[in-house]
């Protein structure tokens, strides 16, 4: 029996009783990893990040995972609110040659750019900023993220109505970090936590 169990382990065979754990990417923050199912940012999910305003530590929360995903793959940032500071990104180990900033002129162009990024195998992660997004549009992007098997993050203003996401985080500024509320997630609910940046 013991031998059999070992063989199962080694061959990477999934046993029928336990559901396959989806691939995750560690967030880079142990306390946040503990609260997320599988211990990190899930793949194939359009993670919804709600912020009250820009500049509360939301990027520092994502940069570790983006640095990891941007090492091999490319990063597509669609409609970031300001100009990124190259030395700061380099200091966070972002490979600048792998980062593409898309500045769409219209909402439609932004949606199209995100969907292109989500369906390209060369892309490691897509990060997008929207002032608003319709439920249908969000669903379409979510579907594409699932099909393409990409990591994707979408920043939305706090006050918008909830979107049909599988993982939603509310981010608020806190002293020396950011206060994260997991407003929607699979599995058991968890209490808000402070992530020290």
């Amino acid at each position: 029996m013991r031998v059999l169990a070992d063989a199962w382990e080694r061959a990477g065979i999934r046993r029928g009783t336990a559901p396959a754990a989806p691939a995750v990417m560690p967030t880079g923050f142990a306390e946040l990893d503990r609260c997320l199912d599988g211990g990190g940012w899930p793949v194939g999910v359009l993670t919804e990040l709600r912020i009250g305003r820009v500049g509360i530590g939301e990027m520092r929360l994502l940069l570790p995972v983006l640095a990891a995903l941007g090492r091999e793959g490319r990063l597509i940032w669609v409609a970031p609110p300001y100009r990124p500071c190259a030395p700061a990104l380099a200091a966070h180990d972002i490979v600048l040659d792998h980062l593409v900033i898309v500045r769409p002129r219209t909402h439609k162009e932004a949606l199209w750019a995100v969907s292109q990024g989500l369906s390209s195998p060369a892309v490691g992660a897509v990060v997008s900023w929207f002032a608003d997004i319709r439920e249908q549009e969000f669903r379409a992007l979510q579907r594409q993220a699932a099909e393409g098997g990409r990591w994707s993050f979408c920043f939305l203003p706090r006050e918008l109505a909830p979107k049909p996401s599988r993982l939603r985080l509310l981010l608020e500024p806190a002293s020396r970090g950011v206060r994260v509320t997991l407003a929607r997630k699979a599995g058991r609910p968890v209490a808000p936590l402070i992530v020290t940046l």
Partner: peptide
């Protein structure tokens, strides 16, 4: 991306 959005819309960051 460039064909659809225009050359200026697809940007790179450098030091």
């Amino acid at each position: 991306l460039r064909a659809r959005l225009g050359r200026d819309s697809v940007r790179a960051v450098s030091v």
